[in-house]
Amino acid sequence: MTDDTHAPVPYRTFILIWLALLILTAITVAVSRVDLGALNVWVALGVASIKSSLVIFFFMHLRQESRLFKLGLLVMLMILAVFIGMTFLDVLYRGAM
């Protein structure tokens, strides 16, 4: 089947992505040395999200896959957000109301 394979990604792209990941790692470490209060965790998570999207879209070839794959990932992330977020409906409001 023709749609079953995708064109090979040139080495250069992967190496550039790898460099970007290293730089982002350095940024996380650097930022973590600055006290931003509660923001620290969110910055760390934000950078980690950027890093992971690089890995997912390039290393894992998601960019080249069909819409079905992207939709599936979206569904999974949505469910994940629901699981974590709705648990906090309990945890954050305990003893509040």
């Binding site: 620290n40 998570l45 980690a48 890995v55 997912i56 290393f59």
Partner: peptide
């Protein structure tokens, strides 16, 4: 598991 580690590393090693 690279992905998992990307989150694990800042959450466990880098909290101020």
């Amino acid at each position: 598991f690279d992905l998992v580690w990307i989150f694990l590393f800042p959450l466990y090693y880098l909290i101020l």
